[in-house]
Design a protein around this nucleic acid. Structure first.
Length: 245
DNA sequence: AACTAGCTCAACCGCCTGCTC
DNA sequence: AGAGCAGGCGGTTGAGCTAGT
């Protein structure tokens, strides 16, 4: 089993830095034919490069709409804010920075902003996290890879939280859960109804977003009550914006 | 002038996801 | 349903450059 490597090292392919001729061939070919299939493009264009390499070169360097040069203060500010919100989702971040490439933003972050970011914002303890270890995600970073919840509800249940499971499919339909909030929000604990509040987020905020199953960094449980206090509604709306067309 | 450390950025690598058959 | 494939993504590497000693 296992997939065939895209550009096996045995093949007679050019590697390393692109030369001007290669750039020209690639750019000319794409200008005429577009970039249909990257895997067959090098062969058709007459390039001794693998498709992935061609794609990368086009996306990060040859594309006509690329804005090169210094990143402005506004862009930098946006990068910081988006990174705070999204973590290392460079493709999403770059979607809000027209003309920039994910590679450029990633490099800029790693060389300019990472150190400053960790100084400015102690909440961002780690700049990287992986899906396989969601506990490593910064606590205020929305994990955008989480699947869309079909029923976006805010479920507050002090006594009978729905069962949590590691099953990814079950997680997909798991309602957004805020443990223990009801007892803070409503001191009348005798009222069982008040302890089981279901809110449609669209009716409680101006955002129409779908909520994600957040996990607490430390114990893999849903967020504590402080989550609501810490949570920045501006970021909720920004997240919503990012996921809109 | 020579050396070194740090920085920048293009390119590569390997994994993941979605699509097709 | 599941295997294979292509595209996309994020992390990492390494060559070239610059500033400091």
């Amino acid at each position: 089993m296992g997939r065939k490597p895209c550009c096996s090292k045995g093949e007679d392919l050019n590697r390393g830095a692109w030369i001007a001729d290669e750039d020209k061939i690639l750019a000319d070919y794409i200008r005429v034919h577009g970039h249909g299939k990257w895997s067959t493009l090098p062969q058709k264009a007459g390039l001794k490069r693998c498709g992935k390499s061609c794609r990368l070169r086009w996306m990060n360097y040859l594309r006509p709409d690329i804005k090169r040069g210094n990143i402005s203060e506004d862009e930098e500010d946006l990068i910081i804010r988006l990174h705070k919100l999204l973590g290392n989702r460079w493709s999403l971040i770059v979607g809000r920075l027209p003309g920039r490439t994910d590679n450029e933003i990633k490099n800029y972050w790693n060389s300019h902003l990472r150190k400053r970011g960790s100084k400015d914002d102690h909440n961002i303890k780690r700049s990287t996290f992986s899906e396989s270890s969601p506990a490593a995600a910064p606590p205020n970073v929305i994990r955008t890879k989480a699947t869309k919840i079909s029923k976006p509800v805010l479920f507050i249940n002090n006594n009978n939280p729905p069962p949590l499971t590691n099953d990814a499919n079950a997680e997909e339909s798991r309602p957004f859960l805020v443990d223990n909030v009801a007892s803070k929000a409503n001191t009348n604990d005798d009222d069982s109804i008040s302890n089981n509040i279901i809110m449609q987020p669209a009716t409680t905020t101006s955002c129409s977003g779908s909520f994600l199953p957040f996990l607490n960094e430390d114990d893999d449980k849903p967020f504590s009550p402080s989550f609501l206090l810490d949570y920045d509604i501006e970021n909720v709306c920004l997240y919503d914006l990012l996921n809109s067309d």
